[in-house]
Write a protein that binds this DNA or RNA. Structure first.
Length: 596
RNA sequence: GGGGUGGUGGUGUAGUCGGCCCAACACACCUGCCUGUCACGCAGGAGAUCGCGAGUUCGAAUCUCGUCCACCCCGCCA
């Protein structure tokens, strides 16, 4: 079974158990810690799998002499007898804690400089800059190591899941054609075609559709994608996507196969979640939660107070209502948040950061009403509030007035309130499908329609007539999967009919010539018997982040980029030789002094 | 492009409304002692001019301006 050389070691630390007791073994690993008792030295040896305590006795003179020179992170090969530890000296914190290796021979395979930060300690906090520069040391730490191992397990489950369901893994090019829709492309200059550029794919979208035309009715790929946009904690310029496409399907097929996958992942990692996954219309998500990716663990929902306040004496509210705006906000039940005046004032201050003019609040304090707008509230209004929302003592209402953007702002406030009042159970997983997205959105700057998903997304069949009359109300056959407020992935049924595709391009103000230049190859493919098809793309990094509880994508990527897109380990990106540029017919358009 | 937080021996932090600081504490490091530790213990030692640059001041880690780096967020991005 172990088809590997035993020249260096007979066993890894994973294999240390009763079966090796009193046997002579040879192990290899790094010095996690040395404890020198003068006449007895302990070495904690670390390999990929575990830790094992090695004891060096002074009777063994040569070995003891070597052990005295040993320092942290030296790489050792140790031979000795694996024995049970003396009663009372077992260490329950490590998997090998019942045993220790009595060293008879130690060979220093390599020395190590003193590491810039501690690898063994529970020194949790250290400058992330250092960890990124010395990434190889950072990855020795148990936490980071565990995260990468978990990523591997997740990837493996995903691959098996699709393979078991008859999907074919097919690779698509990295050097491909720039498609300036959506995100900014990373460009790669062509040497053989001076002045022309490849682009790194933002996703294999067009290729996977073409594979459907080729008849590979179930395709998947675990594939790197590239987007040249600004970074965030959950956004890296290169990231891994689980790319899936199927023929002869409806949304429920792809949603089903995706749900099955997450069911497997949750079961593997023993995390409870809400099956079957609830489905919510985009409009409902926006109205109830102010976002298209609501965190359902947060119990707060946006309430509409416009009707109750339609005759309000408060001028600023009335003006907004008269202009067609709304008064919306939240009910804070004392049972879940215990709102108090200072907290309500703090919320009011925070609200401004979320683009709200401010938050008015009403606190029910016994039979009294405490509120900055108390004198504008009528008895009727107050009793309507109480009746409609079943309000009791110490409950509070948050109100905000606005028109466009009100819901999004309240969505941000909802997340803040969830954190502030600890309303979110971090250990819980709540999935959600968001469906019935609008097909288009209006681009205020460009004064034209844009695709919400991408231009190949099929319109909802019930809304086809509205394409001509009211395109903004047309829904699409797109779906997003959301977990705890994070978008894990999204997909759609694609258009497989050239006429409809042309019509969509027209609505998007993409001329036939332009469409031909950009996507001509796909459009032509669609004319050769394209089956009905659709798919989904899932963010592997984000999935791993949520399953490991990592706070940043950097924690689940072996070699990530900083927020300014650099790699502190390799110092990429960097300048290149003049000669390289010349070969590519590239001249750099920045001043010499800026080049340093 | 914008807003915010941080940068002090190798590491993590304290000091930051100017003088008590040529900077404190813990860990790591080095030396010595120690036969059952596992966050080993004890004694001793070395190590930073406070991200960088300029300015204000009798005096700057501390104030001002600029700049660099990392992180969080908006814009941007599925």
């Amino acid at each position: 079974m172990r088809g590997v050389t035993l020249a260096y070691r007979t066993h890894t630390l994973k294999e240390v158990d009763k079966s090796l007791e009193n046997k002579t073994i040879t192990i290899c690993g790094w010095v996690n810690k040395r404890r020198d008792h003068g006449n007895l030295i302990f070495l904690d040896i670390r390999d990929r799998y575990s830790l094992l305590q090695v004891v060096v006795d002074p009777e063994n003179k040569n070995t003891f002499k070597i052990a005295e020179e040993i320092r942290s992170e030296y790489v050792l090969q140790i031979t000795g007898d694996l024995r049970r530890r003396p009663a009372g000296t077992e260490n329950t914190k490590i998997s090998t804690g019942e045993f220790e290796l009595a060293a008879s021979d130690i060979k220093i395979l390599n020395k190590s400089k003193v590491p810039p930060f501690s690898i063994s300690d529970e020194q949790k906090d250290y400058d992330e800059k250092l960890g990124l520069k010395y990434r190889y040391l950072d990855l020795r730490r148990s936490e980071k190591k565990a995260q990468l191992i978990k990523r591997h397990m997740i990837t493996n489950i995903i691959r098996n899941h699709f393979v078991e369901n008859d999907f074919l893994e097919i690779e698509t090019p990295y050097l491909t054609k720039s498609t300036p829709e959506g995100a900014r492309d990373f460009l790669v200059p062509s040497r053989l075609q001076p002045g022309s550029f490849y682009a790194l794919p933002q996703s294999p979208q067009l290729f996977k559709q073409i594979l459907m035309v080729s008849g590979f009715d179930r395709y998947f790929q675990i594939v790197r994608c590239f987007r040249d946009e600004d970074l965030r904690a959950d956004r890296q310029p290169e990231f891994t996507q689980v790319d899936v496409e199927m023929s002869f399907i409806e949304p429920s097929d792809i949603m089903g196969i995706t749900e099955d996958l997450f069911r497997k992942l949750n079961s593997k990692f023993e995390i409870e979640c809400n099956y079957p996954i609830q489905t919510m219309k985009y409009d409902d998500a926006m109205n109830r939660f102010g976002t298209d990716r609501p965190d359902l663990r947060n119990p707060l929902e946006i309430c509409d107070f416009t009707e109750i306040l339609k005759n309000t004496q408060l001028k600023i509210f009335r003006t907004v209502i008269e202009k067609g705006g709304h008064i919306k906000g939240f009910i804070l039940k004392n049972s879940q948040c215990s709102p108090t005046r200072p907290i309500l004032e703090k919320i009011n201050n925070m609200a401004k950061d979320f683009g709200l003019p401010g938050i008015a609040w009403i606190l029910f304090d016994g039979s009294e009403i405490r509120s900055p707008i108390a004198k504008f509230l009528s008895e009727d209004e107050i009793s309507s509030f109480k009746k409609t929302f079943d309000l009791g003592d110490k409950d509070a209402i948050l109100l905000a007035a606005g028109k466009g953007g009100l819901l999004q702002s309240l969505g941000s406030l909802r997340i803040f309130l969830g954190n502030e009042f600890n309303l979110v159970n971090e250990g819980e997983f709540k999935y959600l499908w968001v469906v019935d997205f609008p097909l288009f959105e209006y681009d205020e700057k460009e004064k034209r329609l844009n695709s919400v998903h991408h231009p190949f997304t099929a319109p909802h069949p019930e809304d086809l007539e509205k394409l001509d009359t009211d395109p903004l109300s047309v829904r699409s056959l797109a779906y997003d999967i959301v977990l705890n407020g994070n978008e894990l992935g999204g997909g759609s049924i694609r258009i497989n009919n050239t006429d409809l595709q042309s019509k969509i391009f027209k609505l998007l103000d993409i001329s036939p010539e332009e469409a031909q230049i950009k996507f001509g190859f796909l459009l032509e493919a669609l004319e050769y018997g394209a089956p009905p098809h659709g798919g989904i793309a899932l963010g592997l990094d984000r999935i791993t982040m949520l399953f490991t509880g990592a706070k940043s994508l950097r924690d689940v990527i072996a070699f990530p980029k900083t927020q300014s897109g650099t790699c502190l380990l390799t110092d990429a990106p960097s300048q290149v030789d003049r000669k390289q540029l010349d070969e590519l017919s590239i001249s750099v358009n920045i001043k010499e002094e800026q080049l340093g």
